[in-house]
Amino acid sequence: MNIFISNTSDKSLYEQIYEQIKNMILDSTLKEGQALPTIRGLAKDLRISVITTARAYADLERDGYIYSVVGKGSFVAEKNKEFIREKNLAEMEECISKASDLAKRCNISEEEFINCVKLIYRG
C-alpha cells in the first residue's frame, strides 16, 4: 500500500490517511483480513505524530473498515456489501445535493439538470 501526505492540502493529516486507506479498502487494493501497518510504524514512515495516526485508525474502525486485535494490530474488516453500498449512496447524495444547489442558483430547470445527469451517467 502507498500513502502520500500533503502538507499543503486543506484536509488535515488524519483525514488524508483516513481517506486513502478507506479508498484502498473500497477498491480492494487492501484485501479482507490483510494486516495494516502498526500505528507507530506508520507514524514513523510518514513522519507524523502517533496520535494523528491513531485517530485515523480509530475513525476507520468506528466506520467499520478495519478492526483491531489487542496485541496483534489492525486488519481490514470483512467487506459488508450492504454497508459499503449505503456509504457510497450517502456520498453520492451529498454530491448531487451540491450539484442541484448549483443548478438552482443558475436557474437551470429540473429537466435540464436530469438530462445532464443522464448524459454524464451514460458516459
Binding site: 488535515s12 488524519y14 513522519r47 505524530s49 502517533v50 496520535i51 494523528t52 485517530r55
Partner: peptide, 20 residues
C-alpha cells in the same frame, strides 16, 4: 513528531494541548 505541544512565552505556559 509531537503528539502534544507545550508553548512557552516569557517563562509562562501559553498553550498546552494536543498538537492536532
Amino acid at each position: 513528531l509531537c503528539d502534544y505541544i507545550v508553548y512557552l512565552h516569557k517563562g509562562k505556559i501559553e498553550l498546552d494541548e494536543e498538537k492536532d
